[in-house]
């Protein structure tokens, strides 16, 4: 079974994402900020990280940079999922190594399509 780490400081968003991902046959873990996410990646090596941008302690972008410098292997696919919806934000995320980008709000079809794009469909 494929695994996904949902990283978001909103419990509600994590719940929605979990629901959708489970319906897409993922096993889901959760983290509330980038710091927790780094630990979870090291411990669990998920196939996919669904990543919020704005979070306390460590933002999604800082997580992405830290993951790049870490020894976590194999590297999970990173799909940003955030309300930061500007062209410049998306550019910065892709340049920092994100594989895909989902603008909130999103639905099951949108997420399923993005997962197909990164090869986890």
């Amino acid at each position: 079974m494929k695994t996904c780490l949902v990283v978001d400081d909103s419990k509600v968003i994590r719940k929605v994402a979990r629901h959708i991902l489970e319906s897409l046959a993922f096993r889901v873990e959760e983290a509330a900020d980038g710091r927790e996410a780094l630990d979870a990646c090291a411990a669990q090596a998920p196939d996919l990280v669904l990543l919020d941008w704005n979070m306390p302690v460590m933002s999604g972008m800082d997580f992405l940079r830290a993951l790049g410098l870490s020894s976590v292997s194999p590297r999970p696919k990173i799909v940003f999922c955030t309300t930061e919806n500007g062209h410049a934000h998306i550019r910065a995320a892709l340049d920092a190594g994100a594989d895909e980008y989902v603008m909130k709000p999103f639905d099951r079809e949108t997420l399923a399509g993005k997962l197909q794009i990164v090869g986890l469909g």
Binding site: H87, E100, Y101
Partner: peptide, 20 residues
């Protein structure tokens, strides 16, 4: 719309071929 643009379209293609 934001909903339509991200249905099936890879983000790099969206940035390259579409303007906000």
């Amino acid at each position: 719309s934001q909903f339509e643009i991200q249905r099936g379209l890879p983000a790099p293609l969206m940035l390259r071929w579409f303007e906000q």
